[in-house]
Design a protein around this nucleic acid. Sequence first.
DNA 1: AACAACCACAACCGCTTCACA
DNA 2: TTGTGAAGCGGTTGTGGTTGT
Length: 218
Amino acid sequence: MENKQVKPPIKKGLWKPEEDLILKTYVETHGEGNWATVSEKSGLMRGGKSCRLRWKNYLRPNIKRGEMSQEEEDLIIRMHKLLGNRWSLIAGRLPGRTDNEVKNYWNTHLNKRCRTGKRKPTDPSNHQNGNDKYKSKKQCNSQTTSSTSPKSNPEESDGKKKEKEESTVTNTWIQDAQSMNYYIESPVMPVCNDAFVLNDEPFIAYWDSFVLFESFGL
DNA sequence: AACAACCACAACCGCTTCACA
DNA sequence: TTGTGAAGCGGTTGTGGTTGT
């Protein structure tokens, strides 16, 4: 009974800089993947999930930190209208941004604004100064931009989910799009928005989201 | 100065999906 | 085809800084 190996307790809570350094060094040396062994072999007393999340959201190269630009913000709003809470998909269209960051930003900034119908003024100066009440708080890991990892291309693996979501996502998107004055034009897309329903089935549900995005010029 | 309330963000949890034997 | 472990995802909670009283 007692010969079971007692696992060391998994550490939780905020990551310390030295832990970041250990994880970063380890992943840069050995590569991503197999997160369960990363925590063991690196000596970090963290769960594999925690390591993966920390790497993905903060330590990975090309992570973009700091305030969202007006363009990014608009994109999030528009895509959320189309896709709902598909944060990984939305983040996939924002180079350097993570799903967690997009989700947090939505929940803290955009959600309430959209609910109240207010929009942030487009004045760029407002962007630098506005809402930076807490800006200096946690900006320790600033990096520059680039693309997301190729492995987790959410748009490809997303086909199966679509059917499940079609009732919630697609039923209103045309109305939303129209209300936002989008003009949909695509080689494979009928010009008339009303033509998206085939035999009671929303036509859009069978599309790859890529087509959807391209159609909106995103 | 002290404390409570508020806010933004980091991290965790549980479920789902994927990959592979 | 099926079982299993790893990875991914989204919702929720925790943490710590700022502001107001």
